[in-house]
């Protein structure tokens, strides 16, 4: 297998989880109730934790190849620019209100669960190890966000309307999860079909949305792509400017 496909694929996994966690951490201290502030902060910590495992693995492999030790989880997270980031567009979108954030977690977590289930059987033992560990965390993200989708979709008229709006906004960013980039396809070597993955996701997600009295957007909705190959929304530049500020302003320091 081509090592550069593996590194690119690790960046897709790591970048998506990091940017997801970075966005969710914006909620810390601002949640609608204390218990839920704690819960969303947990999910943020879990996803950043997953990102760290993938970055550390990528760094180890890059260093092994080059014979140096200059790549770390932090050089990968803090010293790459937006066009080098491979995260899904979905995770870089603004949090919006609580409903929009919940829905973003809901779409992502359901997909991560299916993905990690597959990856935990990967021929790459290290990736498989991280995936099976992450799977336990993601199962909680799935159930927590699904409960909230039901509560908000089927709560009050206002919450229903807000969820409908969030659904319209986020849905066009869900397709990208099931359109593999070339490096992704190469790494996964047809281990599984993205169409099957998509169908599995759609079944789960549409079941819960229906339960939440929300209607699924039309099947022919236009889907945005680009994140996996470094063509992002305008939001990512600002996320990185904020996140990378200290490492950029004071290069080469220990923190």
């Amino acid at each position: 297998m081509n090592e550069s496909n593996t590194i690119d694929y690790l960046m897709l996994l790591a970048d998506s989880s990091l940017i997801m966690g970075q966005r969710l951490s914006e909620w810390t201290g601002h949640g609608p109730m204390l218990e839920q502030d704690i819960a969303i902060t947990n999910i943020s910590l879990d996803t950043i934790g997953q990102a760290r495992y993938f970055y550390q693995l990528a760094a180890a492999r890059l260093n092994e190849k080059s014979g140096n030790a200059d790549v770390t989880e932090d050089t990968l997270a803090y010293l790459r620019d937006a066009h080098q980031y491979k995260n899904l567009l979905l995770v870089e979108l603004p949090n919006g209100d609580w409903g929009q954030t919940i829905l973003k977690i809901f779409f992502y977590a359901h997909r991560q669960k299916l993905m990690y289930e597959k990856l935990s059987g990967s021929a790459d033992a290290e990736i498989a190890g991280i995936a099976s560990k992450a799977l336990k965390e993601v199962e909680y993200h799935v159930s927590w966000s699904s409960d909230w989708v039901k509560r908000l979709g089927d709560g009050t008229q206002e919450s229903h309307d807000r969820m409908t709006k969030a659904l319209e906004y986020l849905w066009p960013y869900t397709g990208e999860m099931f359109v593999p980039a070339t490096y992704e396809k190469n790494f996964l070597e047809n281990e599984f079909s993205f169409d099957v993955l998509k169908q599995g996701w759609l079944d789960k997600v549409s079941g819960i949305l229906t339960e939440a009295t929300l209607s699924l957007p039309p099947a022919d909705t236009y889907m945005h792509t680009g994140g996996k190959t470094g063509v992002h929304t305008e939001y990512l530049g600002y996320i990185l400017a904020e996140m990378q500020f200290l490492q950029r302003a004071y290069p080469g320091c220990e923190w």
Partner: peptide, 28 residues
């Protein structure tokens, strides 16, 4: 919380998030 999104390393970021989360727990 003001520095969570700007923490200089991933390790420091996680420690800071967990700390602020502990404060929510203490409040609870």
């Amino acid at each position: 919380g003001n520095w969570i999104t700007r923490a200089p390393t991933l390790r420091r970021k996680c420690i800071l998030i967990a700390k602020v989360q502990d404060e929510a727990g203490h409040g609870l």
